[in-house]
Nucleic acid binder design. Structure first.
Lengths: 299, 299
DNA sequence: CATTCTGATATCCCTGGGGATATGGAACGG
DNA sequence: CCGTTCCATATCCCCAGGGATATCAGAATG
């Protein structure tokens, strides 16, 4: 049990501020919409709590005392700050404004994310979008503990009691090859042709869904990819491919990474695709989140 | 009658802030020193006033809602600001700290003022001294309307129902001459010798007491000073004397103004002196003012 | 299935703050 | 000398808000 702070009732502070501006009990009471004696009481009560006079009442003239001068700015800030905070809270509750925290997979920074941010900013200019790059697993945790409101990730997990997901788009895989690689000469590649090449992939912890999708894809093609190096970002993966360390399989959106010495080639059995989804808390009733989901759905 | 702002009771805001930190009704209630049901009520009441939920109560986990996130900083600022303001007001009321506004005649900036500021700062390091240069008449008005708490001026007016004065020091007059002036060759000067010289003086409105003192001094010496120029600051007066425009009579403290081409010479009938006084409001009971007067008295 | 932990509900009590009206008293102005 | 202005005081009323206790409902836990 902590020390309880002494609380100055806000009506008294309001009366104090108005009286400090008017320096006249009658007019101040008018502005406050109350009679004069109650105003005298308010000030007296406040002075009792402070322990010192806040005004000097010389006959005919009312003036702030030293204590009153020190209290006035704090009282003003508290009152205006609270009314503004109240308005901000209401606006946020009704969805007109506020902060929306969005987690996103790094692989989306070049594809869906920019358009989404632009569109939603057009629809709701007052809403600030706090975006933070994070891999799938941290996104799920952040969604659960409320650190983010919306997550953009690949390969959402199956049924979750707390979280809901909706597919935003699906895209095929492409092979990532060094330009010097023999297969880079072809426009399309059969997956089985990569069986003997070393692979560069994201670590499974970063996104189990996508990782499993890739390995199972290889399994159906009849081989297990031999991973020689892992990297947490696709940019890094491509850079490693460029050095000739190995090849990779990546979502087609990664073609946006234009890197000299790296070739992207379509994979012929393109029935297997990767899924980009948006996730949110099932319990989240906030209009801010709902509006963003609507923006995503419409785009 | 102005629109009355909606007021969020501070106990509710305190409960809100603590709950936002704990995210657990039981622990928050403990910290607040109350039972859990009242806390639920506080939050509910606050949510009613805001019009939106401030927390999302998923079973087992409590988290801030969007509206709550917007309100939290305002609530924090208001609470801390008010406790600090309250402490500041109490400190000011008891004289430990605060702001003291001092008006002073420009002619004192080089003499009594620096020592006074230094001494008082040593006695009360926490008290901020706001000094502002102003002539006598504005000082009296500022004292009356509470714009300043203490005034340092020359030739205080006689009995005043609202204001009190105490003499700080008296000093003789000196003649201010251009170095080239024939009288500058003497160490002392008889006032009557200045009868034919043109005078540079402060305007009477700036300080009637001092002005009248000077003219009556001349009258007793048998002449009326012929004023050819007025200036509101002694620095300017000396500068004008230096150009040869005329001579002047100034308080001895003005000797501190070391200006090439200007000579200060004692006046032989030195029985007439000018008085530097400190003034304050009779009704001012504040310890800040009392402490400053004590500092002045002791120095 | 019982237990525990969580928060919400339902009552009830009571203080005190905020309001009004009527009156007093000091200072100022004609 | 009287009226006005202005603030303080004295009462009184009312109820919203803050508190407590007891109980309930839903999840998680073992």
């Amino acid at each position: 049990m902590e020390r309880r702070p002494e609380l100055l009732p806000l009506p008294q502070l309001h009366a104090f501020v108005v009286l400090a501006e008017e320096l006249h009990f009658g007019r101040a009471a008018d502005r406050l919409g109350i009679a004069q004696p109650p105003l005298s009481q308010q000030i007296r009560r406040l002075e009792d709590k402070v322990g010192h006079a806040l005004f000097t009442r010389s006959p005919g003239r009312v003036a702030l005392s030293a204590a009153g001068r020190e209290l006035l700015p704090a009282a003003r800030r508290a009152l205006t700050g609270l009314t503004e905070g109240l308005a901000a809270a209401r606006a946020a509750g009704s969805g007109r404004t506020g902060h929306l925290r969005i987690g996103f997979a790094a692989s989306l920074a070049l594809t869906v994310l920019p358009g989404l941010l632009r569109t939603h900013r057009e629809r709701f200019p007052q809403v600030e979008l706090d975006i933070r790059e994070m891999t799938t697993a941290p996104q799920l945790a952040a969604l659960r503990d409320g650190t983010i409101d919306v997550g953009l990730l690949r390969e959402p997990p199956g049924d979750d009691p707390d979280l809901a997901f909706r597919t935003v788009l699906t895209e095929p895989f492409v092979a990532v090859l060094p330009s010097a690689h023999p297969l880079a000469a072809h426009r399309t590649i059969a997956l089985a042709d990569l069986a003997d090449s070393p692979f560069v992939l994201l670590p499974r912890e970063a996104g189990p869904g996508l990782h499993d999708r890739i390995t199972s894809l290889c399994a159906t093609a009849g081989f297990t990819p031999r991973v020689v190096q892992e990297a947490v970002e696709w940019q890094t993966v491509c850079a490693l491919v460029e050095t000739g360390l190995g090849v990779s399989l990546a979502p087609a959106g990664m073609r946006r990474i234009r890197l000299r010495g790296v070739a992207f080639r379509a994979v012929v059995p393109d029935e297997a695709r990767t899924c980009v989804a948006v996730g949110w808390r099932r319990g989240d009733q906030g209009p801010l989140t709902a509006n963003l989901l609507e923006t995503i759905r419409a785009s």
